[in-house]
Amino acid sequence: MAETTPLWAVAVLPFVLVLVALGTAHFDALLAADPAANPGREVLRLLVQQRRRTNAADELLTRLGVVLLPVAAVLAAVVLPLGFRSVSDLADGIVWFNAMEALAWAAVWLAGWGPNSTLSLIGGYRFLAQGLAYELPHMLAITTAALGAESLRVGDVVDAQSGLWFAVWMPAAFVIYLLSAMGMAFWGPFDQPVGRDVAGGAAAELSGVDRIVFLGGRWLLFVVAAAVSVPLFLGGGHGPLLPGWAWTLLKTAAVLALLVWVRRRVPGVRMERYVELAWVVLTPLAILQALVVALVVLNR
């Protein structure tokens, strides 16, 4: 069902993502009922801010990390279908998406390491250590969806859900995906890499435009990771009456709203607890889910 996509979609994609991210951030600020959390105001404030300089900083690596985060998020969104069309429905789209998430992972470490500052270094290393625990269940959940469709192409995964959504018969993989998507975007209850207890962590020394690009990139990554759950588990553009793009938008908005609501309801998860949970419970659970799906697929 892969339809060709016009070339202008490449240029439009980043703007659409930024718009969706801004909308989500606004909704989040609305729930927070805190005028200081308003993303528009925050961006304007940061735009006029002077760039902070630290002693013996590695400017090149800091900039690289800061810029790489939104770039990786946009590149990951290339395989994200709106309805039944994505900018490029790569044959190995699911692996591509995961590879770009991994680049974002490296970006946070770079941004934390670069400024030569203790707290940002702690933030960067925190994310590396946690990322290992997030990435494994995450990868297994994504693999389970690919296994169910017997294809690594996101378009094929959507097609395989014209009847039953994967979220229905792979509930464990779906929940693990949503949890680890928040983790991979170090967002919400999983924001310790940029947490308050380390004075902003990896983002501690970032100011002005750098800060907008880095924290904005985190919102982009979060939006993309949440939106990918729609083609992977929630049937993509499939649905009655409405056209495919409308269903995709509706489902994406629902997932984003759910996660933002969770962020405002759930306190920060203590890392040592979640990391152990991820290794001891979620990873085996994800393997078990993959096994069940593999058996179903083999007997089809």
Binding site: A99, A102, L103, W105, A106, W109, W113, Y125, L128, G131, L132, E135
Partner: peptide, 8 residues
């Protein structure tokens, strides 16, 4: 990418 991150 993951390998280099783990190396860190």
């Amino acid at each position: 990418t993951i390998e280099m991150a783990i190396m860190a």
